[in-house]
Nucleic acid binder design. Sequence first.
DNA 1: ATAATAATTGCATCTTTGTGCAGTTTTTTA
DNA 2: TAAAAAACTGCACAAAGATGCAATTATTAT
Lengths: 248, 248
Amino acid sequence: MLKKERQAFIMHEIDIHNKVLSSDLSLQLNVSEDTIRRDLQELDDTGILTKVHGGALSKSFHFTLKNNIVYSQSEKKSIALKAKALISDGMFILLSGGTTIIELIKSLSPDLRATFFTVSIPSALELLDHPNAEVIFIGNKLLKNSQMSVGAEVVQRLSEIKFDLCFLGTNSIDAEQGLTDLDLEVIEVKRAMIASSAKVISLSISKKLNTVQRMKVCNIEEVDILITELDPQDHLLQPFLAKGLTII
Amino acid sequence: MLKKERQAFIMHEIDIHNKVLSSDLSLQLNVSEDTIRRDLQELDDTGILTKVHGGALSKSFHFTLKNNIVYSQSEKKSIALKAKALISDGMFILLSGGTTIIELIKSLSPDLRATFFTVSIPSALELLDHPNAEVIFIGNKLLKNSQMSVGAEVVQRLSEIKFDLCFLGTNSIDAEQGLTDLDLEVIEVKRAMIASSAKVISLSISKKLNTVQRMKVCNIEEVDILITELDPQDHLLQPFLAKGLTII
DNA sequence: ATAATAATTGCATCTTTGTGCAGTTTTTTA
DNA sequence: TAAAAAACTGCACAAAGATGCAATTATTAT
């Protein structure tokens, strides 16, 4: 294969995915990573992509990244690590949206082979970066703000599948009021998610504990496991323990 | 064999494969690689191919690489503007993935009120930025590379809805071979998209015209309208006109 | 037709380019 | 902060390219 061909392939990949990994390209094109790095350097020199540690980004993507630098919160990372331990090979796992869930996906071992279902586009995109995850998006009408699908069609599809684990990036959780949320359509979907799952796990940073929104999703008893960044002995968690939840 | 004959053969190979290797040509034409190199140099001087280390590339191929960002973008914009004119309020519109489709979505008037269906995540995300579009994602298993959903479930859902317009960002379109693509699962979905739509519109930048991939999606007659950045009188488009397509 | 001239081609030689590898340094991650 | 991943550097070697030269082939003029 000609060098220019290889570089055209790299640009093609960049067009599609907005990013490339040196390691992937090395495998796909059957040349050493050094060669890929040299190609990326050349392409960067001509200015049509931006080389970064590990690979390269499209010019436009790099621009957007620079404009919203996200400091990924250490609390969410700590929650993600605890949640990860519950997942094993072969499971059917249902994921909601939310930054905590994104952290969980990022922290997954690349070797994990499981089937992930989600109704959230950001979660789906993050899952697609995982080399061995089977990703299934339950689609229908999309909400503009939350970028998740809602509606009867979604509820129906969810009811047809039995999931091992359901991870909810929870907005508001309270020992008395249970899970609550803002949007009627979101609530319907969350209820369906909970109903179809053997174990429901709520991921909540501590400041979301004991907060209540307008509309009820379900009672606290429907949640099996609550994961926060706090120590399980923390006094904030005692009401949930009393309700029979497992705290991690 | 005359020099001109040899060079004609080289150009023929370039037309078919978009590239040639000096070593291959040397064997096929039974002359030394030096001679081939001199031929390629001459052809490069006249500007009808681009000589590179190891062989030569077709102009269009090289063009793609060199001007990836700026130029092909403007072609796609021109296509998007022509396509936009076909859309009006209240329509049910089905969109594939691809950068040309993204351009189309970006160019839509903010006042337009229509319902958009898609199987492509990038298209869905772009649609969500439109203030008045109703966005419906037909979800199922997601392909890692193309970020689109595939599978029987998708085909089934598509078959249940009747769309006014279907815009396909076409990979390969040929007057004789029709639409072709690389991936079996993608083909199944595209077929279902075409079957459920009153009008099928193919958006193709000119360099995708008269190219063929491994697997057939449908005959050219199934496509109603072909939109390119070229003038409808362009000779490249005559074969499609002859097949009864509307050219814009 | 044929000699003179010009163009084409292959080969030998030297130069440049492309690629992988080993050792070291930098960056990222746990 | 230590271990792992990625990057960089210099080097070796193979592949491809350039160039001058001689042999062959084609073209032109007489």
